[in-house]
Structure formats: C-alpha cells, structure tokens
Design a protein around this nucleic acid. Structure first.
Lengths: 346, 346
DNA sequence: TTGTAGGCGTTATCAA
DNA sequence: TTGATAACGCCTACAA
C-alpha cells in the first residue's frame, strides 16, 4: 500500500519497475503503451510493481523521445477579466474534446510577460499557441510563426493575414446598440467611452455613428462623452457630467462602451434620483454576468465568448494537423440582449 | 534574417548549431549556460548560427538531463470566479519573484478533472502544486504527497495536518458582519445563504449566530432564510420572501453569505421600492469588484485574496526548499468594508 | 578555451 | 510474447 518511493532520492523509472517485476524494460513500456501485446499474467505483475513503487511516467523523457506534445497554450491578456476567462473556458472545452491539454498563461497586459511566456512555450514545444496580444502587430509574434509553431490570435485582428484570428465585430455591436435605442424612440443619445486608443472603443463608436446617420438623425445629437478609461468611476463621472446639462440638452439615453462603465453610470443615475429607463435609458456592452444583476437589469451587447475560444482552438488544431493550412479570419456577430434599463415600459 | 528552420522537418538542435558554427556541441552548450567561459569570437559565431537557424532550446531534453523543473502549478476550482483569479494573481507574483513559472489548471469544480490535472502535473515533474480541491479529504490528494510532490491546499482546510494550507476565517467574517449590523442598531436581522453543505456558508452562519448571542439578542430574531445556491436569482427570491413578511416581522437588515446573493437581494429591494439601507440594510461577503459598483455600494466582508495566493506560494516554495519542512495552517482574518448599503445616514 | 563521451527516462525497432 | 538496443536533445565532467 505504502509506496517505496517516499524518501528515496529520485522517483522510480521504467528500469526500476522492470527490475521489480522481473521483466525487461521494453515489456514495461509495452504495458504502458500497448497493453494488448503483453500477456495478462506479466501485465498484472508489472502493474503491481508500478503501484508498489509509485511509478509516474516522466513526461519530459516521453516527449523528448516522441518529439511532439499534446499541449496547447493560451496566453491570455488579463486573467481577472471575465471575458477572457470565458474565452479560456471555450478553449479548454474544445481541447478536451480533441484529447489535448491546455496550459494557461497570463500576460497581465504586459508585453514583456507576453514575450517571456511565448519564449517559454516554444521551449516547451507546445503544439500551438492561442494568443490575445498586448499589441497584435508586435514583431515577436511573427517570430513564433517563423519557428514553425502555429499561432491563432484571439479577440484581436492584424492587418496582414499571416495568422488565423477570431474576433467579434465591434462595429456591428455599436450599430446594434444605437439601432435599439432609436427603435425605442430616442433622438438624443450619449456615447460614453474611451480612450480612443482602444480599437474596441473606436469600432463601437464608429458603428454607433453609422447607425445614427442611417437613421437620418443629425450627427450633433449623438453626443460623445469621452472617458479616460472603461471603469466604474469614469462611468459615474460621465453621469455627473450628464446631470450638469440642462434638461433640454440632456440625452435621454446613453450607450456605454462597456458594462463596467454602464454600471457606474447607472449608479450615478440612481443616486441623482433619475428613473432608469424613464429619465435615462442605458445600454452597455459585453453582457458580463453582473449586467443582469444590476439594480435595473442592464441591456447589453453580448459577444459569443465561449464560442470565440472554441473556434480559436479548432482553428489551431486544424493548423497543427494540416501543413498546407490556409489562414482565416473569423469574425463573430454580437447580439443585443434587451433588458429593463432600455425598455420603455408601455 | 529569415530562418532556415521554417519548412525543415524538425527544429534545429545544439548539434545543428554546432555544425553551422563550426564548433563542437559542448561549446554551444557553454554559450547557452556559461557564456563567460567561451571566447567572444566563438560566442558571437555560435550566437549568429543560433539566430540563423532559429534555434530554440528543447526544454524537455533540458529538464530530463537536469532532473528538476522550475515550474509550480495551481489547480484552481473555478476560473470564472474572480476570487480565484485574484488568488492566482497572488501566486503568480510570488512565483515570479522567486524566478519560477506557474501553470494554471482549472478543475471546473469537477473531481475527475482535478484528478486528471494532478496526474498530468506529476508526470510533468512540477516542483510543487497549489490546489483548491473539490473535496479537501479526497484520497488522491494524499497520493500526490506520497509521490513526494509538495502540495499546498488553498482556501480550504483539512482535518489532519499532512499539508500546508491557507484559508480565511469565515467564522470571524460572519461575526464581523453581524457585529457591524448590531452596531448600526439592528435588532432583527436575516441571514441569507445556502446550501449548508458548503463549509463557507456553515462557518459564516456560525460566526453570525455567535456574535448575535454575544450581543445578548434573542436567537429567533436572527432569521435564517436558506437558499439553494449562492446566486443572484436566489438572492432575489429571498428578497421576495422578505417582502411577504408583515412589517412587524420583517428584519431591518440582511447578511448574505456572498455578494452575488446580496446583489440579487438589492435588486429585489429596489424593485419593491424599499430604500437601502433605510428600509433594509444589506451586508454581503467577498467584496467582489462589483460590490462597490452596485446601485447602492455594498458593504461586504473582504478576504485578502492576493495575499492568500502569495502566502500559499511562499509556503510551497519553502516546502520544496526544505526537506524537513513542518506543515502549517495559515488562517487569514477577513475585514469588513462598510459602504452605503448598511450605513444609516445621519 | 574547446572537444569528447556518457547518461537522464522513454519509446520503437528488431531479433529471439 | 518478450528482451536487447538505439536514439531523442541536452548538460556536465573530464580530457586535450
């Protein structure tokens, strides 16, 4: 029952097992990898020896010999952001289905960490890498490809097509939000979000503007309230700026570039005594778990997060399997989830 | 500039580099591991050859030879729970400081996944394992220790002391919440949470009861509203049950076993038209990011999450370094963060 | 300062 | 069905 290994200097190898079972090393290997080929009696003897010794197969030696691993890696941008954990979840499910394992790394939004992780993963000979990059154009991403390691870009896109990528159409997302608010009869709407250096913010705003002008509404009635970041505090601040406007000039609805900002705005609105959506309708973006848990359940634009991860993993697996693989850029469509914060009770 | 490796069957080894640079294999190894010992000229030649060939050191071969890895693993219970991602963050920081790398696995609350991860990690010869177990008493955890792999239990405790563990004192947390509400003058309070099969719920309730009786208040005035899970919906449901009570019998405050439940309760309260904290004071638990973003910022009990992870990693590193290591159970104290949802204005 | 040789634990090939 | 042996790529003595 108790293992012999505890206390021993190094863990037992196939050689030790072979000696203990009184068979050759090759037979032990056969028990491990092609049990059918070895007789029941010896197999049992070997298995008992393995159990007695507490044998654990050494993955390093195995991979060295085999030359190929069955491990994918996901280098995520921010492990504390629920968006990415859901993406990771999708990746894991797809990998599990293909009998692969996944190692998750976290760059924490720092380029140096990303580089370090990529270097380490290449040394570990992972089969392929999924990456949400700090900067999609960064040159070190190319060097991964040059080393022959398949890489798929997740939730970002690149100008060229040297990689597969999966992303969500943020322009469409912005459009959906505004079309919904226009449908609800709003003719003066705030766009709250920033900074514009974020591609997501730019795209969502662009989609909003396009939908606005297509609705035939004057550009100046889509009021931009820029924020320094997509945080609760900035959302609250935007709410206070809104409160400072005269009733005539004040928008009757706001589209926030993400849910966090929208929650801040909602907090400010309720604090001011506004009814939501009566005095101010609010639409967020991301449909985080807490959007529906808000005091007034928040209308939001949902991105297919798990599916994003699943698809990315599938593209990666396809690329590892097929040498003559053609890179493809998959773009998912977001969808609007309408809740109380924007639905005029009527 | 362009690598020679792309397209070649297998990636270049030290031998290839040696051939390309016109030196011996040992010299290449020296360039890699003891650059000081090789002359500047040859070093440069070797380095150029490595760059030209796109050489990447094979970590498997390296570890196999060296016999020891510099990798820790954290098997987390639920990657989508912000609590655990913060713990993971703390682990990563501590590991980074000790020049170790961390692989994160996710059991998704499923015992079979946990077992599979543990088995795989042992095959990968990780230096040590941090684990938030699905069941702290599970026998397969012991078998990790029997194989001589250090393991630290995170955010759970075991009856025996065969492992180091770090956890937070939930009994104290429950006590803090109730003491705060009693301080605020409440004499009829609801405890909302469940199921009791969760140790956390049991402990928080026990602490609440203890503080309540120590305040000299009659036990029946700490009203238990059990829930089937710690979800928004269950919190909302509890709110509706509260609304069904006559004004005389209705508690003036509620302590929820976690923030998610508290947010559901808050939603119901605002929906019913209650003022918070005027008609109902609310205290949650966990101090998740969105507690402060709620419509009425939520009072909550905060656990030192990053510190939990950091300490766990330090214990693990100590255990790997010291053969005669004594296991210790570290218990952190939570703290109450008072916000508007429980602070009587005036 | 550089080269040579042996072995880490595994798997696969081939012969018995 | 089993056993012996040769790699896999790297690191470290030790020899030159």
């Amino acid at each position: 029952m108790v293992t012999a290994s505890s206390g021993s200097g190094r863990s037992p190898s196939v050689k030790d097992v072979a000696a203990a079972a009184g068979v050759s090393l090759g037979t032990v290997s056969n028990v491990l990898n092609r049990p059918a080929v070895v007789s029941a009696a010896t197999r049992e003897r070997v298995e008992r020896a393995m159990a007695d010794l507490g044998f654990v197969r050494n993955e390093f030696a195995r991979q060295l010999r085999m030359g190929t691993s069955r491990t994918l890696a996901y280098v995520m941008l921010d492990a504390t952001n629920p968006f990415f954990t859901d993406v990771a979840q999708g990746i894991e499910l797809a990998a599990e289905g293909a009998d692969m394992s996944v190692v998750i790394c976290n760059s924490n939004n720092r380029a140096v960490r990303e580089q370090a992780h990529l270097a380490q993963l290449m040394e570990q000979r992972v089969l392929g890498i999924l990456l949400t990059p700090t900067d999609p154009q960064a040159p070190w991403i190319d060097s991964v490809a040059e080393r022959g390691v398949p890489l798929v870009i997740v939730d970002r896109t690149r100008d060229d097509d040297r990689f597969c990528s999966v992303a969500v159409d943020d322009v469409l997302g912005g459009r959906l939000a505004i079309e919904h608010l226009v449908d609800q009869g709003h003719t003066r709407v705030a766009f709250i979000g920033g900074p514009k250096s974020l591609g997501q913010v730019r795209d969502r705003y662009a989609g909003a503007q396009r939908a606005w002008s297509e609705a035939g509404l004057p550009p100046e009635d889509l009021v931009e309230l820029p924020t320094a970041a997509l945080t609760v505090a900035e959302g609250r601040g935007a709410g206070e700026r809104l409160a400072g406007l005269s009733a005539a000039r004040r928008p009757t609805a706001a589209f926030c570039a993400n849910d966090i900002t929208a929650l801040g705005l909602l907090q400010a609105a309720i604090g001011t005594g506004w009814r939501v959506p009566g005095d101010l309708a609010i639409v967020g973006y991301d449909d985080i778990e807490f959007a529906s848990a808000a005091a007034v359940p928040l209308t939001s634009v949902r991105q297919p997060r798990e599916e994003l991860g699943r698809t990315a993993a599938q593209l990666l697996l396809a690329e590892t399997a097929d040498e003559q693989h053609l890179h493809q850029q998959v773009v998912f469509k977001p969808e609007l989830v309408a809740r109380a914060s924007s639905l005029s009770t009527g």
